[in-house]
């Protein structure tokens, strides 16, 4: 039987936003990592791109949470001039 607290808790969705430099944009940090790897014995790495990952807990339905996360990515988490982003549910 559900408790009173459970009944009134809003749904919670774990959402991930991944932000990556656009393919045509220079990524000096990724290049530096790629150049460091052979010295550690990892010789087969062709290219490295460095991005960011945001994990959020949003109190909303899944559709609404994903919509909000995309809006956040567009306005703040990513700079559309230089970065692409992807939003998905965690898990």
């Amino acid at each position: 039987m559900r408790s009173r607290v459970d009944r009134y808790s809003p749904p919670v969705v774990r959402v991930v936003v991944e932000v990556m430099p656009k393919p045509e944009i220079l990524d000096p940090q990724g290049q530096a990592i790629a150049r460091a790897l052979p010295g550690l014995g990892f010789t087969g790495v062709g290219a490295v791109r460095q991005g960011k990952r945001f994990e959020m807990v949003i109190e909303a339905t899944e559709d609404e949470a994903l919509r909000q996360a995309a809006a956040m990515a567009e306005t703040l988490l990513a700079n559309p001039v230089i970065e692409d982003f992807r939003v998905h549910r965690q898990g």
Binding site: P21, I25, L26, P28, Q29, A32, N79, V81, I82
Partner: peptide, 17 residues
């Protein structure tokens, strides 16, 4: 100013890092 879209483009990490 670039982040606020008052100017075009963006400034990223120096190429030499």
């Amino acid at each position: 100013l670039c982040e606020a879209h008052l100017l075009p483009g963006a400034l990223i990490r120096n190429v030499g890092r």
